[in-house]
Design a protein around this nucleic acid. Structure first.
Lengths: 343, 343
DNA sequence: CTGAAAGCGCTTACAG
DNA sequence: CTGAAAGCGCTTACAG
């Protein structure tokens, strides 16, 4: 395999100095359009791509951003990364992912030796770090943006999960039949714990209360995040009440299992068993699963923008960007078009 | 926050040239022990740590290794990384983790722009890549080592899962009562599919056959990898046969659910329900869960060694290192000490 | 608008 | 065994 072309070869081919090549690389305005075009062409022909290590050494920027995220494999993080990547790649930034498998690892990430620390900025997903670090601040001088989490010390992009829970409660309260809910359990051994599931459930209870609908304790089923948890939950609920019943599944993954089990039992979703998910993941559409949708990609994109601004020197106070969920009604709660939902 | 110290400051403090500092950094033999000691002391006092970007630029090595692994959060990968880190950190190499969320991402990892590609070597975990890339080779000129996977083109470290399945089958065949098994389903949308669960089950069936024990089709329950899957499985099995029954759970995670459900139903593990897991994860010990244990940490360590050799220039033919599992008998299959298992 | 030069933090022959 | 120098692939004032 032959060596990667360098800036020198590009310069030679384009008939310019290496400084000029560097300028087009960095979108410096002081380059004549024709010159720029020639350089771009040379890069194209050579298959040139800049060496981030050299950029880091020379200019102090490596054009890569670290994303620290929980080591849980869900559609949520897939979508979040899509949102982040969308805006970052466009600005020619690269992402380095750092799944947090343990606290020791997180700390190592933040040590100065590791590459993670040597990137230009950090996105921290889903963790409330205030309890873990002194003063709630990460030991880094790089800009940091939180997403799916909130902290007064950093720019944060988050969803109002309590509102989402309230929407779910108000919606299901309209229907006849008992109301049930599934709460996703936080893993006890998870390095950091996030509170999204509790928040959803708190909002849900509030809304039911306001609607005057009873919600006895044994109408709540707690399980880990898995479709099988949803299956077990539905079996449990059917021992408590007869159809029609209404189930707020707390997460689309779990709602999927409720649908699977309903089908196995010959119960019609949207009729005998109304199921409402949470997340708005792509797969809900083809399943006809009603859901409280989070604009995950948009949240990721926004977080990336905030970080970009910080990396470009913005030094204002921490910003908190709040997103709201949307309830999407599909056949799992409303088989017919007769009664479209109007909040 | 003040700037990181550089090699120059270390040199000055130690009263030597920067070349000498670099030599002790790289364990070059031609350094007088006293000089080395002085330099080390200066580094210590300054809190010096070398800049990997500069090292990469200057010497062609960044002392970081990329680990590409599936984005599935299991104890298995946690242990694997421990094994890898153990030997790599000792040799002053750093790890960069690249969870493979999608095929597009894998390909981007391997493009020359990204940091992943710019590390010194690659560890690829659990994926059989022969179907995905032309000629079964990754588009990189860095050394590559596979772990928990096997490919004739690369150094591979793998477990004999078929043997593990056979051991499980031969072991459970000794007991009275019907034999059941849980097969973990491969996620259809997983970028690459690994075959470990099928291999285990194939070995299991073989051993039962050889032992003359029947294994009807409906004694196999298929589920995703989750404790809840194990709970559903046990309920299913108990509709097919009365205790005592024997369950090969295929994975410790799933076996955990079988134990949970047995407890819920008031059935005694090791007596009414014998449960055998697979993986040998740490949590099995305190649960008293019998399991077919994989030496995951050792596999990781071995893979790291192979990669280290390659990075140091070893150019021999691909090596395949096979590991064997061990059956650990605990109370979930043998409540008393009366009949210790001797294969 | 552009080139030549200095410098980023290292490594590595080259001399001594 | 060790220092001084050249060079890795870039960026960025500095002159023009």
């Amino acid at each position: 395999m032959k060596r990667k072309p360098t800036i020198h070869e590009v310069a030679e081919r384009a008939g310019v100095g290496i400084g000029t090549v560097s300028r087009v690389l960095n979108n410096h305005p002081a380059v004549r359009p024709e010159t720029r075009a020639r350089v771009l062409k040379a890069m194209e022909e050579l298959g040139y791509t800049p060496n981030p290590h050299a950029r880091r050494i020379a200019g102090g920027r490596s054009y890569t951003v670290s994303v620290l995220l929980p080591f849980v494999a869900t559609e949520f993080y897939r979508r979040l990364l899509e949102g982040l990547e969308g805006v970052l790649l466009e600005k020619r930034y690269d992402l380095a992912l750092f799944p947090i498998l343990s606290l020791a690892r997180l700390e190592r990430y933040l040590e100065s030796t590791t590459l993670a620390y040597l990137t230009d900025g950090l996105i921290l997903a889903s963790y409330d770090l205030s309890e873990r670090f002194e003063g709630g601040r990460l030991p880094t001088d790089r800009p940091v943006v939180l997403v799916d989490a909130k902290n007064p010390q950093y720019d944060s992009v988050y969803l109002d999960n309590r509102l989402g829970g309230r929407m779910a409660g108000a919606y299901l309260a309209r229907f006849p039949g008992a109301v049930f809910a599934i709460k996703v359990e936080e893993e006890p051994d998870r390095v950091f714990r996030h509170t999204v599931f509790s928040e959803r459930m708190a909002g849900f209870r509030e809304a039911l209360l306001e609607a005057g609908r009873p919600f006895p304790e044994d109408h709540l089923y707690v399980t880990r995040l898995s479709p099988e948890g949803g299956r077990l939950a539905l079996r449990h609920f059917l021992e408590k009440a007869s159809p029609p019943i209404n189930v707020f599944a707390g997460a689309d993954q779990v709602a999927l299992g409720v649908l699977e089990e309903a089908q196995r039992l010959g119960l019609t979703p949207g009729k005998e068993v109304r199921v409402l998910g949470y997340d708005g993941h792509p797969f809900t559409e083809e399943l006809g699963l009603s859901t409280v949708a989070q604009p995950v990609e948009a949240m990721g994109a926004r977080a990336a923008q905030l970080l970009l601004e910080r990396m470009q020197g913005y030094a204002g106070p921490p910003r908190a960007v709040r997103f709201e969920p949307t309830l999407i009604e599909r056949s799992s709660t409303a088989p017919s078009k007769e009664a479209p939902y109007v909040p």
